[in-house]
Amino acid sequence: MEKEKGIGRFSRALAFLALLLAGLAVWNLCVGSARFTAAELFRLLVSPDGGTNGRILWEIRIPRIVAAVILGGALSLSGFLLQTFFANPIAGPFVLGISSGAKLVVSLMMILLLGRGIAVSSWGMILAAFAGAMLSMGFILLLSRRVRSMSMLVVCGVMIGYICSAITDFVVAFADDSNIVDLHNWSMGSFSGMSWGGIRVMALVVSAAFVCCFLLSKPIGAYQLGEVYAASVGVDTMRLRIALIVLTSVLSATVTAFAGPISFVGIAVPHLMKSLMGTAKPLLLIPACFLGGAAFVLFCDLIARTMFAPTELSISSVTAVLGAPVVIWVMVRQKNSGRREERHG
């Protein structure tokens, strides 16, 4: 029957993503300033010896890979939720200015606190980023009531992003010199310098958000058909909307807090996953988006740190080069499929 073929396709696609992710992780482990052969890698993984290579692997590469996996998945998932929420295929945390809002508040907090010699914990960073994300989200929500067109909403989001980035640059210019290097690196987006402590925090937050999303996949699926229909089959649309706003903000805030703003993953990956899976059902797409986002970001990070080694590219430059064409493709396809106007009630 048709359906069984479909289920086979889904599990094959998910298995493919998992294998891809594992392969990329191994590749990432081997490649870099110090290159490892498979045998060396195996030895270092099984019995870390405390030598330089072991430290590179355990203190630098593995944390970086784990962070890229967690944050890449989170980013792509938040993009999927935003696209569902706004019924807008080109919505994402970066283009709607949510990442930039998070960046702004985090920068402000860092400058204020670091200037006084107070260290900021991972939780503090996430909290600040969440506040910033909610701020941008609030503006976007206000605008979305007035702006009916999908592309206009995205333009507004991009503008909010610019405003937030401009203010960030402005305050960074007036910050103490000692903080700037750190802040500058971070605000460009990078996975370097991840600590195991930070990873524990991000793993906790992101997995909690992921589980919540997965549990909400049934109402999210109903919501994809439109708010009125969702309500008519018994979805509490008000509560679902709030849940979606909070979840997307938490996810993109966590990413921004640890790795800075990262562009285009949130839009590109969910679309690639929809094409791969041949469906937009949240029950299947939520795990697929997470795996796909993790693999995509892992690949981008590999390019970012090895292409012009020892100089490292900002992760956003790589994700933009790979992700933006996908977005253009999506927009062209949207126009071609002949979008219909809203029917009035």
Binding site: P89, A222, Y229, K274, K281, E342
Partner: peptide
């Protein structure tokens, strides 16, 4: 159950999927 004038946009959903939304 309702059938209103609100336009429904879907992505990669078959007619079966859309109709099955009624089983929610």
């Amino acid at each position: 159950s309702v059938l209103m004038t609100e336009q429904t946009r879907t992505e990669l959903a078959t007619c079966f999927d859309v109709a099955a939304a009624g089983r929610y």
